[in-house]
Design a binder for these strands. Structure first.
Lengths: 338, 338
DNA sequence: TTGAAAGCGTTACCAA
DNA sequence: TTGGTAACGCTTTCAA
């Protein structure tokens, strides 16, 4: 691959001049410019970005740390960041970190070694302290899907608790009174917060959520099916289910129908996330929209320093997103005839 | 961010020594090594990969060119490449190219400028000639989902035509005789090849495919629904449908059931791709598995030069993958009672 | 308008 | 076992 020197030699000019031509620099004679340009084309010259990064101290690279791309959720996240990267003439450098503390740490380090000045981090395992440390070191590091008070102004997160409340209100507004929940068996924050909000909202309306009305399983299709079987086996009565995510919700619907229940006629089902799946299910799933791509785009802009006017609100509680209720076909007015 | 010089100064050694420590180089005194290591930790020193890339002439980066990450298909592709990158201590640099000729070209160029020596390219718009030119320039450039004879040994592609044949055989083996097709309205290679294979296989068995039995629409859920309505409206008889992709197939099932047809009892439906969706649909979709992630992993290994023994077969027709039939619930024996 | 040269942070070779 | 130094390909002053 030819270098700036080759071009300079062939064109009979100095490398400084070639550099000026490459960068559309000022003050280059029309004739020299034309000659250099033609030599560049002839040689197929392409400037070496690594060398540029070294001298200019900027990498033209937007880093993103996620477990991997196999989960559509993270693919959407990465896609949002990539969109912004492209808008800003930068490229996406992916650093996948699985879900161990050490690999998350390593993923961030690799980005730092490439002198990536803007980084969107999704991390569940690293301690608050370590993340804060990284954040202090890198002004362009931003946290997505997690809230840490000390770096609140760099956190972009979803209010899961409010999501639970919205689900509760929706179900109650339809006349449902016997609510059940299907949760994830993994004890991370998200499910806990969603059901906390859900439960609190019920309580405020004088309804209660019995323990036997909450079942747990793997957060996927099969998990949803299994959980629903447990629910049916437990012989409790319910006319609506709030499910941890869309995949489980679809599993729940499947099992309900296999057991003679019609959704939403006999039982309403509401999911969470609003992934692609929810529009493909029959009946189409009512769910809470998790605007991950939008959040990721915002996070990227924030990392790039493109967000200017920040309110006091945002400085203290970060950039909080509220899930939006998407009414489709899996919930409907409770039929009191039953 | 501190540099190797800072570490050298603080530790009272030369930068050469620090470099040796960093790279676990040979011949470094235990005591100096320990001292340097502790200074490095203290300063939070991280080697600058850009500088390294400049001097070593390797980027530790695996490039991938795709339209974007919003399509799960491309996300899987990228995920496959990323897996291999990680196994080889490299990182994924994403270059998204939309679907215009110029942006595909630009996406490849950006990767070249970063001196990415291994690149997995998905390109539909660039001409064969231009791709060959790039390939000649970069030994580590590999083409996925496309076959070009002159660089056959660097092409990883799916035999769409064979996929169509497999679908035809499956449907015929179930006793179906009145076949219909739902295709994509976009005239790219894939649908054309799939239906060509399908049709040919029918012909060989003495069955024919009438023109009014082929309808087209957008390759998504709604498109599948619309296409199916057209099919029903045309008043032709059919007992099985071969659909361009899973999304359309799910739309087809939905419309069929809305019109009183039971799948697979009255009509068998077979899709293509085997995306996540197909396992979530009811009935679960019978489809042809497109092993894109596996293909992407292989492509990445090939780009890295990790594939050694190549057969004559592969040199002449590239790395050809055959879609695999996945029997689920949307196809079944034709009931002759009807 | 052009060129010379310093410097970006490394690695790797040659001496010591 | 260590250090000095050229070189990687480029940008950016400073002079001319």
């Amino acid at each position: 691959m030819s270098t700036i020197k080759d071009v300079a030699r062939e064109a009979g000019v100095s490398i400084a001049t070639v550099s000026r031509v490459v960068n559309n620099g000022p003050k280059v004679g029309e004739k020299t410019k034309a000659r250099v340009l033609s030599i560049m084309a002839e040689l197929g010259y392409r400037p070496n970005e690594n060398a540029r990064a070294l001298v200019t101290q900027k990498s033209k690279t937007l880093g993103v740390v996620i477990p991997d791309l196999s989960d559509p959720f993270f693919a959407s996240l990465a896609n949002g960041v990539d969109k912004v990267a492209r808008q800003n003439n930068m490229q996406l450098l992916l650093s996948t970190g699985l879900i161990t503390e050490e690999s998350e740490r390593q993923a961030i380090r690799l980005l730092l070694e490439r002198r990536c000045e803007s980084i969107v981090v999704h991390s569940k395992k690293l301690s608050d302290e370590e993340i804060i440390e990284f954040a202090n070191k890198v002004p362009g590091l931003v946290l997505i899907d997690r809230f840490i008070q000390k770096i609140a102004d760099r956190c972009i997160w979803l209010d899961n608790e409010e999501g639970g409340k919205i689900a509760a209100r929706h179900l109650m507004s339809l006349g449902h009174q016997q609510l059940a929940c299907i949760s994830s068996k993994y004890q991370i924050d998200d499910p806990a917060l969603r059901f906390k909000g859900f439960k609190n909202e019920l309580t405020e309306s004088g309804l209660s959520l019995l323990n036997q009305h909450i079942v747990e399983d793997e957060p996927n299709l099969q998990g949803g099916e299994m959980a629903t079987q447990k629910l049916l086996a437990s012989d409790t009565k319910f006319d609506a289910i709030f499910v941890y995510n869309d995949a489980m919700a679809i599993g729940a619907i499947s099992t309900l129908e296999d057991n003679g229940f019609r959704v939403p006629l006999d039982v309403s089902v509401i999911g969470f996330d609003d992934v692609l799946l929810s529009r493909y299910s029959r009946p189409k799933l009512t769910t809470l929209h998790y605007p991950i791509e939008e959040m990721a785009e915002f996070a990227a802009q924030l990392a790039l320093g493109n967000i200017k006017d920040v309110t006091a609100q945002q400085i203290s509680s970060g950039y909080k997103y509220i899930p939006r209720l998407v009414k489709r076909e899996s919930t409907s007015l409770h039929s009191f005839s039953k």
